[in-house]
Computed example of a mutant assay.
Amino acid sequence: MILDLFRLDDKVAVVTGAGRGIGAATAIALAEAGADVVISSRTESDLARVAKQIEAAGRRAAVVPADLSELDSMARLAAVARDELGRLDIVINNVGGTYPRPFMETEVEFLEEAFRFNVGTAHALTRAAVPVMLERGGGSVVNISSVMGRVSGRGFLAYGTAKAALAHFTELAAFDLAPRIRVNAIAVGSVATSALDIVLTNDEIRARMEQATPLKRIGDAREIAATALFLASAAGGFVTGKVIEVDGGTQAPNLDLGLPDL
């Protein structure tokens, strides 16, 4: 059966930023497909809710509250997967994000921190995961990037630059780790998560964003989770070094920050 290719029975995954939004939806999706999951984010109460849903799907959850901006915390998750769940097959690098800033307020330090949080974290966990994955023959890494890594909009210099770097990191890492470990990314458009609450609760702004998106709606976190499942499973077994765009057809930013000319 073709759907069997999407099964992850007895595999083990690590999902970062798993307390809510895309990370939570992805962790639950992987569990529903048969995987045990290490979930990590800053807020333990959020992780507890996700763990209950993983367990309701009949799978095990290892909960690791941590500040994932600390690279040592990221790297430690691979050891948790091996020590508590017995192996590691899948990594979902979902940590990231950077607040918008006008160009002249984007200090070098802010740009460096954006790179560290969006790319350094992914590299730290992937590098730690590789030896554990190879113990079982290989695995799959999925990085969560953004449409802002390929389009231009005012205020997104640090975020867009970091996400563009993550996309190319994905392509380079795929070559480095082939043939035993596949590495792909998802370039995400506007998705209804807590990160966008501040704008999506404003009906006027939401309507403008939907109108500026070719599919005329905001994405659902489960749609990103479904793409991650495809890339992590045997269904995506001949895919590596690719950035899958799940953005409603977006070709330009659908949120104008209203920053004036200099």
Rank of each mutant, 00 (worst) to 15 (best):
Leu157Ser: 14
Ala165Asp: 01
Gly137Pro: 09
Ala167Trp: 00
Thr170Ser: 04
Arg154Val: 12
Ala164Asp: 00
Ser145Gly: 15
Ala158Gly: 00
Tyr159Phe: 12
Arg150Val: 14
Ala158Asp: 01
Ala162Thr: 07
Leu166Ile: 05
Phe169Tyr: 15
Val147Asp: 04
Tyr159Pro: 00
Leu157Val: 15
Ala167Cys: 11
Val130Ile: 14
Ser152Tyr: 08
Val147Phe: 06
Ser145His: 07
Arg154Ser: 13
Glu135Thr: 11
Leu166Phe: 01
Gly160Lys: 02
Lys163Ile: 12
His168Cys: 08
His168Arg: 15
Met148Cys: 10
Ser145Val: 07
Arg150Phe: 15
Lys163Ala: 08
Gly155Thr: 02
Ala162Asp: 01
Val141Thr: 11
Ala167Thr: 08
Gly160Ser: 11
Val147Ser: 15
Ala164Thr: 02
Arg150Gly: 14
Phe169Val: 06
Ser140Asn: 12
Ser145Thr: 15
His168Leu: 14
Asn143Thr: 07
His168Met: 14
Glu135Trp: 03
Arg136Gly: 14
Met133Ser: 05
Thr161Leu: 06
Leu166Glu: 00
Tyr159Leu: 02
Thr170Gln: 03
Arg154Ala: 15
Asn143Tyr: 07
Gly139Ser: 08
Ala165Tyr: 01
Ser152Trp: 11
Met133Arg: 09
Leu166Lys: 01
Thr170Asn: 04
Ala162Glu: 02
Ser140Asp: 07
Ala162Pro: 06
Val141Gln: 10
Phe169Ser: 07
Thr170Asp: 04
Val141Asn: 09
Gly138Pro: 06
Lys163Thr: 10
Phe156His: 10
Leu166Ala: 00
Gly138His: 08
His168Tyr: 11
Gly160Ile: 05
Ala167Met: 15
Lys163Asp: 08
Glu171Pro: 06
Thr161Gly: 08
Met133Gly: 07
Phe156Trp: 14
Glu171Asp: 07
Arg154Glu: 15
Gly137Val: 11
Phe169Glu: 03
Leu157Cys: 02
Ala162Gly: 10
Glu171Cys: 09
Ser146Val: 15
Glu171Ile: 13
Phe156Ala: 11
Thr161Asp: 03
Tyr159Lys: 04
Arg150Leu: 09
Val151Met: 11
Val132Glu: 01
Val142Lys: 12
Gly137Phe: 13
Pro131Ile: 09
Pro131Met: 06
Val141His: 10
Gly155His: 04
Ser146Pro: 09
Val130Gly: 00
Pro131Tyr: 07
Val132Ser: 00
Gly137Cys: 14
Phe169Asn: 09
Arg150Tyr: 11
Arg150Cys: 03
Gly160Met: 06
Ala164Val: 06
Gly149Ile: 01
Leu166Asn: 00
Val142Met: 13
Lys163Ser: 13
Phe169Thr: 08
Tyr159Ala: 05
Leu166Arg: 02
Leu157His: 05
Gly160Asp: 04
Val141Leu: 10
Asn143Ala: 11
Gly155Trp: 01
Gly139Arg: 06
